[in-house]
Every structure is written in structure tokens, then in C-alpha cells.
Amino acid sequence: MKTYGLLFITIVFNFSLSCFGQSKDNARDVTAIENATVRSDNSSKENMVIVGYYVEETINMTFGKRVTKYEVSKLDMVYTNDLGPNNTRVVTPIYRKPKVRRVDLALQSKTFVDSSATKILPVKVEVIAPAEDPKYVTIDVVDTYAKVLGKGYKSIEMLTKVADRAYFDGDLATAAKYYEELFVLKTDLDAMYYYRYAESLKGINQMGKANEAMLLFESKNTSNNVVKHNKLVRN
């Protein structure tokens, strides 16, 4: 509190000196203006500052006089033209009390937190096991059928699948074998099986059986023009 009081007294003292110096300087400046005089009342100007100037210019004429009045904020804004003899320009300073800005100084307090008293809770981490990719097993049905046939178990479907696989893979001996076993189980089959059987026999040079198989094929496929042509050629 003592510090604030001392600071306020210092500001007031400096301010009074500045006001006094300002008044003396303004008086010197006014005398430099043509036809200008300074008018000041006898009231105390302590703790006051000049905020402007009131100017009154009087021009004396033969029939009366003309008076011009105006206010300016700065002294250098007063007209400096020569008004002529017996004419006057009166400059009156305008005083006002200055606005004192009050500054409040406050000490900011800092709050310290004792981290040792803070309880740290454990962090739960969820562990997810990676999903396993599904495992696929590729099974070759025809190979399985072939293994089953090798053990003596036979069916029309298995013989058809295995014989066709061997035929298209170029294994004509195996194809002829399983086509022959197929015809033992069933004779009323599609004509194409007899054709494939005949071609398989030709591939392994069993021409006698091949011709017989071709005749069976032609008998089951009489509507085919190719078959009719082959019959005419043989006849």
C-alpha cells in the first residue's frame, strides 16, 4: 500500500511540473503569432492541462467592428495572417483536468499440485487374437474315384468320370479300360461314349475292337449325317 501511495505522489508531482512547463511554452508560442495576445484568468491551473485554445479576432472598421471566434485543439492551428493595425487576435487556453488512469497491480498466485498424492489407475488393454484364415482342402473327385475303382468298388458314375478324364488327358489305355468296364455295367448309354471308346482303342492299336465299338456308335446314332456317310463308304 505504501508503494502505491508513493507512486501516486510521484505521478502528481511530475504532472504539475508538466502543466507549468506547458503554460510557459504556450505563452511563448502565442506571442509569435501576428496580432496575438494571451488571455488568462487568475484562477488556479494546478493539476490541469491545456486541451485547446479559444481564439477571438477583432477587426475594427469605420462603422463598427467584426469579431470572429473559433476553437482549435493545437496552437499551430491558429490563423497567423496579419490583421492590420488596431486589430487584435486574443488566444485563450482551455484547461481541463486530465484523466488519470488507475493501474491495479495484483500478484498472481500459482497453485502447486502434489503429484505424489494422485492415484494412478491401471490401464486395461484388450488383446484380440488374430483370426485364423479358414483352411480349405481341395479334393480331386476323379482321382478319388480312380482309387476307389482300383479297390474293386465300381459304379456307372465313377467309371464315366474316370474314363472321360483319361480320354481328354490323352491317357487312351486307361480310358479304353474304364469305358469297357462301363459297358459291362450298362449297355444303354449315350452314343458319344461308344465313340470315345472306339477312338481310345484306335489310339492303342486295337483296331478290331475299335471297329466293333464304332459300329455300336453308328447303330445308336443313325440320325447323324457323318455316320450315314461312313456306312456308304464301307459298303
Rank of each mutant, 00 (worst) to 15 (best):
L159N: 00
L7F: 13
M214C: 02
N225C: 08
N205G: 06
V127W: 10
P130N: 08
K124D: 09
V100S: 03
T10Y: 07
L7Q: 13
T160V: 01
S223D: 14
V125I: 14
Y79E: 15
D114K: 09
V55I: 05
Q22I: 05
R165H: 00
K110E: 15
Y53G: 02
T68F: 10
I50V: 06
N225E: 15
G150D: 05
E132R: 09
I50T: 08
N47G: 09
K147E: 00
T138D: 13
S200A: 10
F15I: 03
T62R: 11
L232W: 08
Y153K: 01
F13N: 02
S109G: 11
K209Y: 04
Y54S: 15
M192F: 09
N221W: 03
F15N: 04
L185V: 03
T3I: 12
A129Q: 14
K202F: 13
V51A: 09
Y145D: 04
T68H: 13
L232H: 07
V137Y: 10
Q22A: 11
A163R: 00
N87R: 00
D143R: 02
G170M: 01
N35W: 03
T138M: 06
V38H: 06
Y145F: 07
F15P: 06
V127S: 05
F112S: 12
L182V: 01
A210S: 09
H229E: 15
R101H: 14
D143C: 05
D76F: 05
K65P: 04
K99R: 12
Q22Y: 08
S219V: 04
D41E: 04
L185N: 02
T144N: 04
S16H: 12
M61Y: 13
N81C: 06
Y197P: 00
V226G: 13
